[in-house]
Write a protein that binds this DNA or RNA. Structure first.
Length: 205
DNA sequence: GTCATGATGATCT
DNA sequence: GATCATCATGACA
């Protein structure tokens, strides 16, 4: 069925930002940080939205980039928490992670989808799309929409151009298996905002 | 709606 | 040479 293409209006409630998340927030287990990022607002140069989908990658996890040890690509994951780890995916896209836990623990949360709330016109221009549901509904899409590239690799998340604001209310969170991986594909380390129209894929029910 | 496929480059064997 | 933490497109139902 061809649904009429109606761009979703930004949720006015989502625009009420909580305080900035500081490095201390990220200095905890990825399994604690990942679900708490759902509902937070990620901005890059003032453009972004509400985080509606993330995945946790722990250094003991065969699917994590850090699993095989430190390399030039994943070096930021081995550094202190509260910094951005950006890598190229499939030779084409950029993906952004937030480094968690402690220096050397090499654990991170992949930001997979946003509900666009800030700078939506800029995102539409970069992506060449109107439908807000498609602007940031995937890890490669959201970096394109926000203008995040390898230049952001290693930048602190609590200073410009990044800002992540704490959520105001406790969201209804769904969990499920992660997307697009072959190793450890059964770990339920994908977290999402239940019922969101801005997910990269629906959660299995 | 589902499914298959090509693009494209760093990393690793 | 194979493997990717992906996306857009086009065939088909």
């Amino acid at each position: 069925m061809a649904r009429p293409r109606v761009p979703a209006a930004p949720d006015p409630a989502a625009a009420r930002l909580g305080p900035l998340l500081t490095r201390r927030f990220f200095a905890r287990s990825v399994h604690a940080v990942a679900p708490e990022l759902i509902g937070a607002t990620l901005l890059f140069e003032g453009v972004g939205g509400v985080i509606v989908e993330v995945e946790a990658y722990h250094h003991t996890d065969p699917a994590a980039h850090s699993y095989g040890g430190q390399t030039p690509r994943n070096a930021v994951m081995f550094g202190p928490p509260g910094f951005a780890y950006v890598y190229r995916s499939y030779g084409i896209h950029w993906c952004v992670n937030v480094v968690c836990e402690a220096e050397g623990s090499a654990s991170a949360v992949l930001i997979r989808a946003l509900e666009p709330t800030h700078g939506v016109d800029a995102m539409r221009a970069r992506r060449g799309l109107d439908d807000a549901r498609l602007l940031c509904s995937g890890p490669g899409k959201l970096t394109h929409a926000l203008g995040i590239t390898i230049a952001a690799n290693g930048l602190p998340l609590d200073l410009a151009p990044f800002a992540i604001h704490r959520r105001r209310a406790e969201p209804d969170i769904v969990t499920g298996p992660r997307i697009g991986i072959t190793k450890a594909a059964d770990y339920p380390w994908r977290f999402g905002l239940r019922g969101s129209k801005f997910l990269s894929k629906p959660f299995p029910r």
